[in-house]
Design a binder for these strands. Sequence first.
RNA 1: GGCGCAUUGGUGUAGUUGGUUAACACGCUGCCCUCUCAAGGCAGAGAUCACGGGUUCGAGUCCCGUAUGCGCUACCA
Length: 501
Amino acid sequence: MTVRVRFAPSPTGYLHIGAARSALFNWLYARKSAGKFLLRIEDTDLQRSTDESTRSIIEGLEWLGLDYDEDLVFQSNNAPKHRAAAHRLVEEGKAYRDFTPKEQRDDKDVKQNISERARAQQVEGVDPRSNPFRELAKEESDRRAAAGEPFVVRLKVPAEGATKFDDIVYGTQERSHSEIEDLVLLRSDGHPLYNLSVVIDDIEMGITHVIRGQDHLTNTHKQILLYEALGAPVPRFAHLPLILAPNKGKLSKRKHGEVVSLTTYRDRGFVPAAFRNFLALLGWAPPDGKEVLSKEELVQLFSLEGIGRANAIFNFHENDPRRWTDDKALWMNAEYIRTMPLEELLPMVKTELRANKLWREEYDDDDRDWLLKTLDLIRQRYFTLKDFSGQGRAYFSDDFDFDETAVNKNLRKEPRMRELMLGLADKLETVEPFNMETAEAALRAYADEAGVKAGLLINGARTMLTGQAVGPSMFEIFDVLGREASVQRLRSGIPFQQETL
RNA sequence: GGCGCAUUGGUGUAGUUGGUUAACACGCUGCCCUCUCAAGGCAGAGAUCACGGGUUCGAGUCCCGUAUGCGCUACCA
């Protein structure tokens, strides 16, 4: 039997990183077992679903490199089938119509209501599962329905016994039927509800393994009851631990903002492979401990058995812009940026430079070698793709900013710096040929001549040429920027004209 | 309220059927390298394995209880 798994997000807003990880694990499992990875948009709640959200989900998966098989399924298209199935269950006596008038429920404090109701029922000794309509004669039920009386359709959960299944991650799960209320399948307006829709769609799509968040663990028993009522084989289940905020609370956009949205990582300069790699390590551990893994390696090493059971904390620092997301994610991204093949990095940098009007067409042909050399030089200390257009701006444009602390530290401390820089410019102008070695020799000779330490000139020149106090070896910078730009920038008076803060 | 699940250094995780000094990665500290910052190399701090009992010659690993967190309990998904 070929494995068929699916990722079934509801299109209500951005793609949550937890959902993205579910998608990744499903995808990895499918590819690992040469099965199919399907995508289904769960848009049963039409009020909250948006096309934009659907688009962002598809884009997000594409960005992560998770390709899906077969056609995209929209759950809302199957609503008629869901309704028909519910009615069939009523006909077969496996479900029944409940004519109890609808109770208005405020979406805000449902949890509160639930526990209050449970407490009240316990005090009064009422069985929450009792329902006067459960045993209503079929003729009576049909008659009232035909008369237009509104009703919901509920599944008849057996009074006795228990449901049991073997979760691949959490082990054997058993739940007594006495704890399961007769769940609503169809709303009084005829709208099918979640548990019904997923089960029918999963049957329809031939899903063999349901891999999803742990928040569905207890609901699984209800779904199994549905599979059985519908006479369909029950798939295998693997529930995933949840991803939590640093305070162990729920990770939500409302509370935590953009860090939870997958698109943020794309927009803030993550390399897809790096983020995918990071995500894979949240709740799953490779057997041999090697953590930096390519897509192929992940597929090869992945197994559902390797998934842990404890929820993971996504450890970002809300008030520290430098550590805006998980440290390890940032490290992973830097690791990819400095070690991945340059040809793979190049298109990503191209997009980044283009967006900032720093891309020149010559980079594609005449200056391609120069570009590759420069990228290789500067990528060593970058964390995100944004750095190529930010910190790296001076390598692609003469119009760059001077960092105030760099200017103070490397240029203003030494009163003679302006003339030293001009002198250095004069020296470099005559060096022939102009390269790393000759530039270094010239600079050191000039330092001796002027009676200053080479380091003073080096640090000053770095700031003159790049606007920054940190960066690659100075002589490599000379080499990459070339004689003309180097000399011109050394002669610039701009940093010296700025007001001291 | 009921039911379920979880609990190894700051974070992510390893710890095969109970057996020595609890391992790895990120982060943190220091040193080396050095023209700066990274990277890299070296060294180090940090865990009475949530707590309390029990079984055992021996428990992070098995059992019971407690606490805490999370989830479900909806005509939400």
